[in-house]
Amino acid sequence: MRGFVFIFILLFLPGMAQAGKMVKVKVQKSTIFQQPKFFSKVVTSVNYGDQLEMLDKLKDWVHVRFREQRGWIHNSSLTSAKFRLGTIFVGSPSPSATHDEVAIAGKGFTPEVEHGYKESHPEMNYALVDEIESYSVESDSLYDFIARGGLRITEAE
């Protein structure tokens, strides 16, 4: 009996250790909306590393609380420590399930590494990369572009 309990604990420890209701933002910037859909009213913006309390899920959207404000955020913005049974038993590393991206962000290819590379390779055109990253699309403008062009947003089934 004692052996069975021990095996049971060992099998489920990985999940228990990673389970939790806190999720982190894994992208530079994202938006919490009032409704679980794009272009609904914006509640607030969140940045990389912000911690959100997960309240509920609906398809690709997660209902969260952040600094006393509630709203919906798209799940592609989030890294979650939440355990997913399938990935554990498959055993292959899954970027979204078994690793907390934000927690290991201080190591690996960081801004410090990029800075060193830039210094040793001045011929690489990082100034243009920065310029291209500044190309942005305003939400109202995109909404108008989609509507006028007879386009649409299809939410996941």
Partner: peptide, 19 residues
């Protein structure tokens, strides 16, 4: 076994774009 994070992917991509 740890995969490349999305942040690392971003820095790799910037490097490829610069090249």
């Amino acid at each position: 076994a740890r995969p490349i994070t999305e942040r690392e992917e971003y820095y790799i991509g910037r490097g490829v774009a610069a090249r």
